[in-house]
């Protein structure tokens, strides 16, 4: 099967490698297109097949420009999702510390000492 992005019969079809693009990233990206398009997502082998069909007949949409933007947006949202996934635990820790009363605070780093060397 030819997995090339295309515009056919007034509809956009995009193929994304599921080993590179995450479902969450794709969904978050498509959210921003769901006002103007009816969207379907299917899996064909190792690829997501995403189809966007304008949801109103008289819409004047330049599908070539939209396809170009959509491909860039998929990349952007995929990167965002990588950051979100990798930093989830740190973010949870940050917010827990922010809303705690100090019970999650670590003691200061390093040794506490008198650096000048005076002794009392």
């Amino acid at each position: 099967m030819d997995l090339k992005n295309e515009i056919k019969d007034g509809q956009i079809a995009v193929f994304l490698d599921s080993r590179i693009y995450s479902k969450a990233g794709i969904s978050k990206c498509l959210y921003w297109y769901s006002d103007k398009f009816n969207i379907s997502i299917n899996i064909i082998g190792n690829h997501f097949k995403i189809e966007l069909k304008p949801n109103m007949e008289n819409q004047k949409l330049e599908l070539e420009i939209i396809l170009e933007k959509l491909v860039k947006d998929f990349l952007d949202f995929n990167l965002r999702q990588i950051v979100t996934s990798e930093t989830q635990n740190v973010r949870d820790l940050l917010i827990a510390k922010a809303f705690s009363n100090g019970e999650f605070d670590d003691p200061p780093l390093g040794e506490i000492s008198d650096p000048v060397g005076f002794k009392f």
Partner: peptide, 18 residues
């Protein structure tokens, strides 16, 4: 490092924002 050494500072600033 896996957790930023100044995360308590960041948490204080987050608390301040809220």
């Amino acid at each position: 490092t896996p957790v930023h050494p100044l995360i308590d500072v960041l948490a204080t600033r987050y608390r301040n924002k809220k």
